[in-house]
Each structure stands twice: as structure tokens, then as C-alpha cells.
Design a protein around this nucleic acid. Structure first.
Length: 371
DNA sequence: GTAGGGTTAG
């Protein structure tokens, strides 16, 4: 269109930018950006928001922030686009700072803002602020029960802070108002399922999954990861395998590496290492190439827990053949050696990692203590 | 008629 000399307008520009965003083609988006800068449409808040979104989704958060600053007449939409970029990048403090600046810029909080704030609270385990946002929602948002995004953000926030009953209360409230209507979608159900899982309530999680099926909600890939993992924790091998099987048979979903490793983990937890190896081989035989690394890693992880050196080393070798840069494999193998006090082997492993220029990230965690 | 949100195991 442009090369034919036809002038573009903001509608066409927004369309092209969102298209390059969904195709994950940042380069094309950047080209449009420089074109926009010359055309004079750069001050359009519509075009600006689309560009912020493109940069934020391409992990170019600094570029997104610059774009935001350059929009002369800002509105909530462009602020929210940057805000969700911060949350996506786990820059929760930066996100909350932006939220604090919004009133001064004459920007109102809407559902998008509040849902992103809750995500930041979840990331920071900031229960006090999270409660304040919930209070604000109850007071100011009359149609809270209509918004599954806000509901699931609340469920996640309470769950992350360990308040399982509060999460359940929100989840039940979301279902209550609509009686027979299916207002709770699969993501909201999965959020609650995940809260149970992360807090060790695996039995309840499995029951909730069954309840979801009874309500006629179609489970997705994420729901299956969570429920198969829950089965692993309760030792319900048969049930876990049935879920794995019905994923493709009944729901026509293609199991990914994460499902395969859940199944391996489930079998190994139950001490069925032989059977796990058999499953790995079967899966590889079926040509699930994408699964192969994670299958060996899952097997290695299980061997690490059980102190099975021989099989662990074999699994590590196979995993590294496929992905030599995988630091996780070295860490797992090192854990296995440490468990059995095989210090010489750990030394060798460190040397190998150094030679290959690999480094393990150090861990970090924090919580807020409820006052 | 254009732009922005929530779920994944180990």
C-alpha cells in the first residue's frame, strides 16, 4: 500500500502493527514505526498503544516505555499496554510505580489496570496491597462478577499468598451469581486448580477438575498439566494415565513436553521407574520429538530423587545429546551426585560446565509477612 | 471502523 503511494491512516497502521505483533515480527513493526515517525501519525494514541504493545510483547520493555513517554495525549489504554508489559517482564515494582503515576497524568484505573495490579501483587506476594485492590473492586466495580479476568487475577493473588480459602471464596462467588450459566471459563477453573496444587491440596484439585468436567467446561492443555501433576502427588497413577490418555482421545489435544514429563514424574514418584523408562521409549517411538529433552530431564529428576545413578547418568547423557547448553541437566545431575556424596564427579561436572561456558543462576526469593 | 487484561509441572 505504502509502496504504491497510497497514504496510510491510523486504521491501516494499527492493523499492520497488531498483525506484526501477533506474528511476532518485531522487525516489520520497527519498519512501520520509522514510517510512522516520518508520516506525522506518531502522536496518535492508537498507533502509540499498538507500538507499546508490540514492544512489550517482544521483550523490548525499554522501547515500550520510551514510546509511552512520547505520546502527547495519553489515555488509560496506552498506560495499560505498558503496564502489562512490565508485569509480563516481572518488573512488578516498575508496574506499580506507573500505576501510582496514573492519577497525576489524569488517567483512570479500569478493569485492565486493576487486573495488572493484581498480577503485580501476585508476583510480589503483596497481600496487603492485594487486599486493598480487592476492596476497591468491591466498592467501585459494579460488574466485578462479569469479569473472568479480574476473578482469576484475584484467585491467583490469594493463592500465591497462601490464602486458599479466600481464593475459593472468590471462585465460588464467580459461579454463584449465574446459577446454571457457565460464566466461569476454563482459565478461571484452572487458576483455582493451580492454587490447590501450589498449596498442596491435590485431592481437592482433582475433585475440582471433575466438577469442571461435569459443568461441561472443556479442559485445555494447561488444565491437564495441573491435574496430571496433582495425580502424581496423590499417588493416583492410574487416574493420571487416564487423564493423559483422554487428552488426545476425547479432547483432541496434542500432549506437549510438559504433559510427557508430568507422566514420567508421576510414574517415578510412585517408584515405577522401569515403567517410566518404558513410557519414555514408547513416547520417543511415537516420534514426539519436541518431548524428548523434557522426557529425559524428567527421568533424570526422578533418578535424582531416588538416587539412581546409573539411569540418571544415562538420562543426562541423552538429554545433553539433544540440548548441550541445558544448564538444568547439569544441576540435576550434580544434585544426584551430591545426594550420594560423589564429590569427585561433581568436580568433573563443574569443569565440564566451565569449559562449555555455562553458569548456573543463583536463586532468590522473598515473601511479605502478614501483619 | 483503529490500541490494552487472567491459567502450566519439576
Amino acid at each position: 500500500m505504502h509502496s504504491n503511494g497510497i497514504s496510510t491512516d491510523t486504521y491501516a497502521l494499527c492493523g499492520s502493527i497488531t498483525a506484526s505483533s501477533s506474528l511476532r515480527n518485531v522487525e516489520f513493526g520497527k519498519q512501520i514505526h520509522s514510517h510512522v515517525a516520518k508520516s506525522g501519525w506518531i502522536s496518535s494514541v492508537f498507533v502509540g498503544s499498538a507500538l507499546i504493545d508490540l514492544y512489550a510483547k517482544s521483550s523490548l520493555i525499554a522501547d515500550a516505555a520510551v514510546m509511552f513517554d512520547e505520546i502527547p495525549l495519553k489515555n488509560s489504554v496506552c498506560a495499560n499496554a505498558l503496564l502489562s508489559g512490565f508485569c509480563e517482564a516481572k518488573l512488578w515494582i516498575e508496574g506499580l510505580e506507573l500505576v501510582r503515576k496514573m492519577p497525576g497524568l489524569n488517567l483512570d484505573y479500569d478493569h485492565f489496570t486493576l487486573s495488572a495490579m493484581l498480577r503485580a501483587c501476585t508476583g510480589l506476594s503483596a497481600i496487603d496491597l492485594g487486599r486493598q485492590v480487592h476492596g476497591y473492586l468491591i466498592r467501585k466495580v459494579y460488574n466485578l462478577a462479569d469479569d473472568v479476568f479480574l476473578q482469576s487475577s484475584l484467585v491467583e493473588m490469594y493463592g500465591k499468598c497462601g490464602l486458599v480459602m479466600k481464593a475459593l471464596q472468590v471462585f465460588n462467588f464467580a459461579g454463584m451469581r449465574w446459577g446454571g450459566e457457565k460464566r466461569r471459563d476454563v482459565v478461571l477453573w484452572t487458576s483455582m486448580l493451580g492454587v490447590y496444587g501450589r498449596n498442596g491440596h491435590f485431592e481437592e484439585g482433582i475433585l475440582l477438575f471433575e466438577e469442571m468436567l461435569k459443568e461441561g467446561i472443556e479442559p485445555d492443555e494447561v488444565a491437564f498439566v495441573t491435574v496430571i501433576s496433582a495425580c502424581g502427588h496423590t499417588g493416583q497413577i492410574q487416574l493420571g494415565l487416564e487423564y493423559f490418555d483422554c487428552m488426545s482421545r476425547v479432547y483432541k489435544l496434542i500432549p506437549g513436553p510438559e504433559h510427557c514429563s508430568c507422566v514420567v514424574d508421576l510414574l517415578c514418584r510412585a517408584g515405577e521407574v522401569e515403567r517410566a523408562v518404558k513410557v519414555v521409549n514408547e513416547m520417543l517411538g511415537e516420534g514426539r520429538n519436541k518431548c524428548s529433552v523434557s522426557l529425559w530431564v524428567a527421568l533424570l529428576s526422578a533418578c535424582s530423587d531416588g538416587g539412581n545413578v546409573e539411569l540418571g547418568e544415562y538420562a543426562a547423557k541423552r538429554a545433553l545429546e539433544l540440548d548441550p547448553q541445558n544448564v538444568g541437566v547439569y544441576v540435576q545431575l550434580s544434585n544426584l551426585y551430591a545426594r550420594l556424596e560423589m564429590w569427585d564427579e561433581i568436580g568433573q561436572l563443574r569443569d565440564t560446565m566451565k569449559q562449555r561456558g555455562l553458569k548456573k543462576d543463583s536463586g532468590l526469593s522473598w515473601i511479605q509477612v502478614t501483619s
